[in-house]
């Protein structure tokens, strides 16, 4: 077959081009691209703030000492239940422990659980959806019925059933939350896979002789990755909420450990007198989830639409 590669002379790159129809748009230079990114961000201060919040939370999760050098479990009893001040940004709790330090150190446990939950949902749900969407027929039918059933049990109850079976603890809570959102991932992944599998360009690839599994790898996966990634980021926010709910109900790490949800549960007893015990960890959760959702929205085509 190599003869066809050299059958004709070198390609004529410009001579045969008749006028206007081949005028190509000029590709942007690196400088222009940088300028475009800056302008995009400049118009979206909210997105910039969201990215900074997520960055801070990540630092808190991996190097809590950098943001709050103190020990989260040691307090000065004389300083108990102090409102927020310069010395204690988020105030102190009933044992005189610094709430800010506890929130920062709590990020690690809460985020760990969230990451595990999203990973479980993404991997299991993604694979199920890919299988259903790509193989089709009875495999699709069977898997989607299972998904329907999972969706018909409210997520938090499914998580509670799993916790009943598995027991308490951060990791178990994480798995319970992850399993409960497998179904929605499977659904999105299936829909994306089907959409792309039936797209004209995949048929075109098949029509030029590309094998089925090659189209899966080269066309379906790369094109489905985007929407699924957006969902994963969105799910990250939901998982933070779900994990903190279960932790609030008392199914997470045992007491001295600072989890975001259990911090609020502790503060609940002092609600009438010390508002900051609940408000501050809650605001931290809200800020994190809001930021994650904002980033998810930006990923969901805002950039490509802005061009």
């Amino acid at each position: 077959m190599t003869e066809l590669l050299i059958r004709e002379g070198p390609p004529d790159s410009s001579g045969t081009a008749p006028g206007s129809s081949v005028a190509l748009p000029i590709p942007p230079t690196r400088r222009e691209r940088l300028h475009r990114v800056l302008r995009f961000l400049g118009r979206r201060p909210g997105l910039v703030v969201a990215s900074l919040v997520v960055l801070l939370v990540l630092v808190a999760a991996f190097a809590p000492g950098a943001l709050a050098p103190g020990d989260p479990n040691v307090g000065v009893v004389a300083d108990k239940l102090r409102p927020p001040s310069a010395a204690h940004l988020f105030g102190t709790d009933y044992l005189g422990r610094d709430v800010y330090t506890r929130v920062v150190h709590g990020a690690s446990l809460s985020l760990q659980a969230t990451v595990i939950a999203v990973a479980v949902a993404l991997v299991v749900g993604g694979l199920l959806g890919l299988l259903a969407g790509f193989v089709g027929r009875w495999v699709d039918e069977a898997l989607m019925r299972v998904v329907d059933v999972l969706l018909s049990i409210p997520a938090i109850l499914l998580s509670l059933a799993l916790i009943t079976a598995l027991g308490y603890g951060t990791i178990k809570v994480a798995i319970a939350v992850g399993v409960a959102s497998v179904a929605s991932f499977a659904r999105v992944m299936r829909a994306e896979t089907m959409r792309i599998r039936r797209s004209t360009y995949v048929e075109a690839a098949r029509a030029v002789g590309t094998r089925r599994y090659v189209t899966l790898w080269r066309h379906v996966l790369p094109n489905a990755a985007g929407p699924v990634l957006v969902l994963a980021v969105l799910e990250f926010g939901l998982a933070i909420l779900a994990v903190s709910s279960l932790s609030f109900l008392g199914y997470g790490a045992p007491p001295p450990a600072p989890e975001w949800g259990s911090l609020i549960a502790e503060g609940r007893n002092y609600l009438a007198t010390s508002w900051w015990l609940c408000a501050m960890p809650g605001l931290t959760i809200a800020a994190t989830v809001l930021s994650v959702n904002r980033i998810s929205r930006a990923l969901d085509g805002e950039w490509s639409r802005a061009r």
């Binding site: 926010g237 609030f248 609020i264 609600l271 609940c278 408000a279 809650g282 959760i285 989830v289 959702n293």
Partner: peptide, 22 residues
């Protein structure tokens, strides 16, 4: 709405109690 779905439900409840009850 996107603000409201980002808030932990239990926290919203506690804050409502804080404001309207206490």
């Amino acid at each position: 709405p996107s603000l409201a779905v980002s808030l932990p439900v239990f926290w919203v409840g506690l804050m409502l109690v804080q404001v309207f009850a206490f």
